[in-house]
């Protein structure tokens, strides 16, 4: 196990970098969407509109912290915190570069899946405690969607775990020195990507929000900093999923010439852009179509992928002895 020489520095480093990236994504997404949609996007505040994020932060911090009188106050306040906590906890096990990891957990993959499951509570409780029909419908959709997509999200990365022989993310990266897992596990890669989009509730899987139908769904009643937490939570989620894909399938920090941390950030960044591109291009399926797709197409594929990978691993292991 690799232990970081300066644990406290690493913790704060990861925390600050993750939050900065998430905040920067607000600007990046708006600019990229604008670019693809023949618009300008925010370009007034600071160079290229970069300080727009600061302006938004200042605005959101100074907004009235309003709780609807009909809401269940305690849960209403806790809900947005849950999403921040669970996503940020997941960052703790992400290996960013050799030696830069907060906690080199030997069940890192499982830990992240567990945190992602807990994240459902945030959305479901937010919708429930708002006591608003739109929010409730959004929360129900979110709960159903995230639970069902989690099933094959877990299954789709088991192939990687089988190949690497470990749940530890650092060892998974090490196992990709010869060949990135995206090649042998291409199906798993695609499945995980789709499940990842669904987990972060981004278009085309933004059914819990669905602004043209449910008017922001589960967070309709949220404003000010609590809304901001959902907002940043979503971007943190994108960053997390993108980093995970980079680690599990694209070799994490591995790459020639450039320093490892640059490789990791570059891969993550490109995946984030892909997430935003999805949002710019796809319509939203209907709820029942989403469920049918998840249970009848994705799940069988994930199981098949796991079985085939397992069979191959066993077959090739015959020659070797454990």
């Amino acid at each position: 196990m690799m232990i970081s020489p300066y644990p406290v520095a690493t913790i704060f480093g990861v925390l600050i970098v993750a939050l900065t990236i998430a905040a920067g994504l607000i600007w990046l997404e708006r600019r990229l969407l604008a670019l693809w949609q023949d618009r300008y996007g925010p370009n007034r505040v600071g160079p290229f509109g970069l300080f727009q994020v600061m302006a938004d932060m200042i605005k959101i911090f100074f907004k009235e912290d309003w709780i609807p009188p009909f809401a269940d106050k305690t849960i209403f306040v806790i809900a947005p915190a849950i999403i921040m906590v669970t996503v940020l906890m997941s960052f703790a096990v992400l290996p960013i570069a050799p030696g830069i990891v907060v906690s080199d957990l030997n069940v890192g993959v499982l830990f992240i899946l567990a945190m992602s499951s807990l994240g459902v509570y945030s959305v479901a409780l937010a919708g429930w405690s708002s006591d608003n029909k739109y929010s409730l419908l959004g929360a129900l959709r979110a709960a159903a969607q995230m639970l069902s997509y989690e099933v094959f999200m877990g299954l789709s990365i088991m192939g990687v775990v089988l190949l690497a022989g470990s749940f530890n993310l650092v060892q998974i990266i090490d196992a990709q020195r010869g060949l990135w897992f995206v090649i042998p596990q291409f199906l798993g890669f695609v499945l995980f990507l789709i499940a990842g989009v669904a987990e972060t509730r981004r278009l085309p899987f933004d059914l819990p929000e669905a602004e043209s139908e449910l008017v922001a769904g589960f967070h309709s009643e949220y404003s000010g900093m609590k809304f901001g937490m959902f907002f940043v939570g979503e971007y943190l989620g994108i960053t997390l999923i993108s980093s995970l894909i980079a680690i599990l399938f694209l070799g994490g920090w591995l790459g020639p010439i450039l320093p490892p941390i640059v490789w990791f950030l570059l891969k993550t960044f490109l995946l984030i852009c892909f997430f935003i591109l999805l949002r710019a291009s796809l319509p939203r399926p209907r709820f029942d179509q989403l469920m049918t797709w998840g249970w009848k197409v994705m799940l069988p594929l994930a199981v098949a992928n796991l079985l085939v990978t397992g069979a191959i691993v066993v077959a090739t292991a015959q020659g070797r002895s454990f």
Partner: peptide, 13 residues
């Protein structure tokens, strides 16, 4: 119409 179905870009075009 595309926007009603969740597609964000066509409306700008």
């Amino acid at each position: 119409f595309a926007q009603d179905l969740g597609q964000l870009s066509p409306v700008f075009y």
